[in-house]
Amino acid sequence: MGKRMVWFLFILMFFLHQDFWWWDHSFLILGFLPIGLAYHGIFSIACAILGWAAVRFAWPEELEKFAESSDQSK
């Protein structure tokens, strides 16, 4: 997995967020969570996994080095 895959997943998540397919459903998951809420709860967990992937595979090392380098050019 590289930066491109992380970017692809990031954009894909915006589409997955628009869950029109559950719009008029109110059945409960585990007996208490309406599906519209359960789906978005899982979506939040997926966001955290994507965050981990971004940190693991697309971390801006060069920016970190740039900030830590000593030549102040202000």
């Binding site: 915006f14 967020h17 869950d19 809420l37 709860g41």
Partner: peptide, 14 residues
């Protein structure tokens, strides 16, 4: 929740 919270999880982290 979907309106504000889950999308914020994605956008804020991004």
């Amino acid at each position: 929740y979907g309106l504000m919270a889950s999308i914020s999880g994605l956008v804020h982290a991004g």
